[in-house]
Design a protein around this nucleic acid. Structure first.
Lengths: 229, 229
DNA sequence: GCAAAAGTGTTTTGTCTACACCCATGA
DNA sequence: TCATGGGTGTAGACAAAACACTTTTGC
């Protein structure tokens, strides 16, 4: 009865697309796949999938991400709904875009091969299907804004990282350089870093101390909105 | 052929819901309607409607807003996609929420009666259907964030307004008081206000000068991201 | 002449920016 | 011993915050 009220309404195909960001230590990257269905089969694309009747939109995004990366406990946030009538030449599909931040080390290589997926520098993307370039552009922008008020950048770093990696990440996100001393002072004032005894010795003779971030304080800052950078 | 690739996917009902903000000079208000269909018929609700196959999601939101307010050239922005499976007991409906800012003077009284719509203080909302309360909460938050970096507040004020009204608006949005002198200095430094000869004489003996905002500068600031408050 | 809101500057405080040198180590 | 990246402090500029009195005019 209740449902009958809606029954004369048109139904649409609803999809999710995931912008998956990773960080190499130098560059911000996005994970793309070779599209496996028509139209535009074989072109580079975001990882996506359709939302089914019995799953939430968030669940669909999580599922799609899991399928590509094998990762389940990662930072993901809804970005925007792309709803133009002709955005997909294969039919009327409305897409909800999400962006996710993953740690490159955790990433499952096998799945990457299975899906023909590949990391691309976000500043050097190949041609993409549909409006996926615009989605990534918006995700980049959102990441900037979000990272300015929430410490989400840590989701892109390995568990232990050096201050240089941390600074490099923010430089990649903001596409500009920061003064080393000012940057570190700012981060330290938030009091979310914990210095380890261990040093990273690969990239310098002296060695750089590893840090981890303090999860409890992180969570608190993530809820409030703080001035991060 | 292309379409056949998608043909075995499930289709869903897609709706839009509009959070419509207005400002009285004292309070931030939201426009609600009595829901006219089952389920939950008769309860207060956001204005909404279904997205049809041949219209974009944005177009659907614009259409819905036009139907309720008779206004077409107003500030509107996509807020979020609400996609829980059970958010609407009447069936599986995914909703894209939008928020709009309108000038109360422009608002068509007749349409308001036709739709049984009514303004409510955003801080004193009645019980609402589904997840509409959450939508409004998120819209309030987004409005705060957006107003901090874009001069969108003017969309809520009449064409000419006093400095007191302007300050009152920002106090309503941020739910806190500002120092009169600091506030005005900040706004004036943006150089988007134009002072008129005319005075508003209702609310004081001395009278307060009216201002209008400079559209050209407004547009420019709206594109960039500036520190507004 | 007084009540009520309008309008206007200065000082203090804190934050952001710019900037350069010594340290520890492995080769 | 030297080349390489690691690590640290200070001074000046600028923006934000705190703060109180005079003006106008209708009653």
């Amino acid at each position: 009865m209740a449902i009958s009220q809606y029954s004369d309404q048109q139904r649409l195909l609803l999809a999710v697309d995931c912008i998956i960001f990773g960080f190499t230590g130098k560059e911000l990257k996005a994970l793309l796949v070779k599209r496996q269905i028509e139209p535009e089969k074989g072109k580079w694309s975001l990882m996506g999938g359709f939302v089914s009747e019995k799953e939430s939109v968030d669940a669909a995004a999580t599922r799609v991400l899991d399928q590509l990366t094998g990762l389940t406990d990662i930072y993901m946030e809804q970005l925007f709904c792309f709803g133009d009538v002709k955005r997909d030449p294969g039919g009327r599909v409305v897409s909800i875009a999400f962006y996710a931040l993953i740690k490159l080390d955790d990433y499952d290589e096998k799945l990457m091969e299975e899906h023909n997926s590949q990391w691309f520098q976000v500043s050097k993307l190949p041609p993409l299907v549909f409006d996926h370039r615009q989605m990534i552009k918006m995700a980049k922008q959102r990441l900037k804004e979000k990272a300015a008020t929430h410490p989400i950048g840590f989701a892109l770093l390995p568990k232990k990282f050096t201050l240089q990696q941390l600074q490099g990440l923010y430089e990649a996100i903001y596409e500009k350089e920061f003064d080393k001393r000012n940057f570190i002072r700012k981060i330290r004032s938030l009091d979310i870093l914990e210095k380890l005894e261990e040093k990273e010795k690969e990239s310098s003779r002296k060695g750089a101390f590893y840090y981890v971030f303090d999860r409890a304080k992180y969570d608190q800052l993530d809820k409030e909105s703080i001035e991060f950078l």
